[in-house]
């Protein structure tokens, strides 16, 4: 009878069919259609013919694209180390079985469940000149107020602060889980050898969680490369594009300037970058699990 169950039958595929239809229509087909679009002269209303790599050439010759690349790289290069570092710190500090640390873990993770629009609204209440919490604090100290969201340099910084605040919960939780996986007898054996605490930390703790640390970093690289809502809502990329990341560049090109072909070309370029990072993530996960 078990043989019947194991029989290859086309009717068995019916169970997977509903999902496969949605997958084909809304993920696989759009992925291919996007490549096709990127080689078309296109706006929101139609296609006007094949133009080969023309869209790509236009994107790669656009100084705004390269500005967006620089902004994105700067953003990733600054937020990811902070997220991993703070995550590690919190995981070490809150890896105890006390009620207090459970509450703090809950507090640090709570912002993760909020939507990007709530996060940006909260941080605008902090950053806006005159009415913002920081402004009031600066005034009380007698300092010159700063236009955090409208000053070159500060605008991307402010987006970064809001992002770290929003995303910090995940690195903390993942690193915490890795810390709790470390077998206690490793430490006991080290204690018998009279190893110093710093030695235990650097020779046992860090090597044991290094796989997770790399995984956390790669996850954050992939996530922060896709920065969009925070920048769009807090600074709208300004001033002068100094906080405009790649995804916002794509959004502008395709959905505000209706240059769909060029937007598609830019999104394929971003896809390649993210794909490379995702492959890295897959490889790292495999290694970490081994």
């Amino acid at each position: 009878m078990a043989a019947l169950h194991r029989q290859k039958r086309l009717s068995n595929a019916l169970f997977a069919l509903p999902y496969l239809v949605v997958f084909a229509a809304l993920l696989a087909f759009p992925l291919g259609w996007g490549v096709y679009l990127s080689m078309q002269k296109a706006d929101l209303f139609g296609l006007y013919g094949f133009i080969g790599t023309n869209n790509y050439v236009r994107v790669l010759n656009d100084p705004l694209f390269w500005q967006a690349v620089r902004v994105t790289l700067l953003f990733v290069a600054t937020t990811v180390p902070v997220l991993v570092g703070l995550g590690l710190f919190l995981a070490l500090a809150l890896n105890r079985r006390t009620r207090g640390s459970a509450i703090l873990r809950g507090a640090f993770f709570s912002s993760t469940v909020l939507s990007v629009t709530i996060v940006t609204l909260i941080w605008r209440f902090v950053f806006i000149p005159g009415d913002g919490l920081l402004s009031i604090g600066f005034e009380a100290m007698g300092w010159e107020p700063i236009g955090f969201l409208s000053t070159r340099g500060w605008s991307l910084f402010s987006v970064g602060i809001a992002t770290v605040w929003w995303c910090l919960g995940l690195p903390m939780i993942l690193i915490l889980a890795a810390l709790q996986q470390i077998p206690a007898d490793l430490y006991e054996a080290a204690a018998l050898d009279n190893a110093s605490r710093w030695r235990m930390f650097s020779r046992i703790t860090i090597p044991q969680i290094s796989g997770t640390l790399i995984l956390v970093a790669v996850i954050q690289i992939v996530m922060q490369f896709q920065l969009f809502g925070q920048a769009q809502l807090m600074t709208n990329g300004g001033p002068n594009g100094s906080s405009r990341p790649l995804v916002l560049y794509i959004y502008r090109t395709a959905f505000e300037n209706w240059d769909v072909g060029r937007g598609a070309a830019a999104s394929e370029l971003l896809f390649l970058i993210i794909l490379a990072a995702a492959m890295l993530q897959f490889w790292v996960t495999r290694r970490a699990n081994r």
Binding site: N12, Q226, G263, L270, L275
Partner: peptide, 29 residues
């Protein structure tokens, strides 16, 4: 369950995990 093409299709679906939203959002629109 066993059905023709199951393994290949599963691998294709898994590749979908690596597709970010911005690669498909314009065609979807």
């Amino acid at each position: 369950l066993e059905w023709p093409g199951r393994k290949v299709i599963f691998v294709i679906v898994l590749f979908g995990l690596a597709v970010p939203e911005q690669a498909v959002i314009i065609p979807r629109h």
